[in-house]
Structures are given as structure tokens and as C-alpha cells.
Amino acid sequence: MTTSLLKVILLGDGGVGKSSIMNRYVTNKFDAHLFHTIGVEFLNKDLEVDGHQVTLQIWDTAGQERFRSLRTPFYRGSDCCLLTFSVDDSQSFLNLGNWKKEFIYYADVKEPEKFPFVVLGNKVDVTERQVSSEEAQQWCQENGDYPYYETSAKDATNVAVAFEEAVRRVLAMDERTDHLIPTDTVKLHRKPRSAATCCS
């Protein structure tokens, strides 16, 4: 069976835990002393989702504004975007819309309304929340019915589930496009054939 490579990208404000989510998922480790990410980083992970062998290439990005020019060139070619905020930081939640806009612009997404986004509310292990689950779910519904997961990189809550959902979304998209392309191809091939029958 062929393994397909899927590029997913983690976007969100600085400090919401994007690098920690990636590290938790790939190496199953949590380091409270991580440096701020500069530019972009990535790790690969092989997994099987619904019988599909997939290599997930997870791109972690720098959240700070001053790293914008370094990260944006790497948005292109993404198959899925994980918009990340921290449930103990309402500003990071309010910025989700800006991250979505930045992604659509620099990734040059042709049909933004169909692009698979997944929203992650990280740091649910923290007791003092600033963003409620309902608020987040409401934003997801209003912005394109994105799946929403409350994660914790620290205690591994929902991290794997969220990435698997991302893969499912991409595979579902691919099936739809796979379904479309053959119909076009068939039409092109039929024409000369039908012309030949016409002449003979």
C-alpha cells in the first residue's frame, strides 16, 4: 500500500503550545523549558487512519509577530491547518480569525471555504480558563463548522485524536477531489473516441 505524505501546519499565537503539541504527539514528551520557535520546524510521523497509511509532516511555526516573514513562505502546500489557541488566554482565542486569514492569504488557498481547518484549545490542564468550551465551539460553527478539540500537551489529552481528525478531514477532501478529476478526464478521452465512431 502506498503511503501518502500529508502536510499539516500548526498556527496560533506565541506561547499557546504549538511546539509542545507537536512534541507530545511525535515523541510523547513534554518539556516546559522549550525555547520560542524561530521560523518553522517540522517532524514526521507515520500513522494509519481508517486503513490509510499516512506520513504526517507536522509543521510547527513561530507565533510571534516578528517572525512572520520567516514562517509565511512555508504555508504553501499545506493539506490541513490546525488553528491553535490557549484556553487560559482569551487574546489567543480572539486572534484565531487573523491566523485563518494569514494562512489563506499566504498558502494561496483556492477555495478557503472548503479547506480543512481544525481548531485546538490547548492547556485544558490549567484550572483558570479564560475561554469556555461553548465560546470556542460557537466560533468554530460560525466560521465553517470546524472540528474543535480541547487538548493538553502537558498531560497528552486529545492530542492524538486531534491529529487523526486532521488526517480524516484531508482524506475526505481527497476523496471528493478524486471523485471530481476522473469525471473530467473521462470527458476528454471520450470525445475523440466518439468522433472516430462517427466517421466510421
Partner: peptide
Amino acid sequence: YHSSLASLNGLEAHLRT
């Protein structure tokens, strides 16, 4: 190995481009 892998991947991608 694990603490540097992601950053090395990223740095390589940056420098290559």
C-alpha cells in the same frame, strides 16, 4: 536527537530556500 530534530529540519528548510 529528539530535542534537535525538529529545529534541524526547520533550519534546513529555511536555509535551502
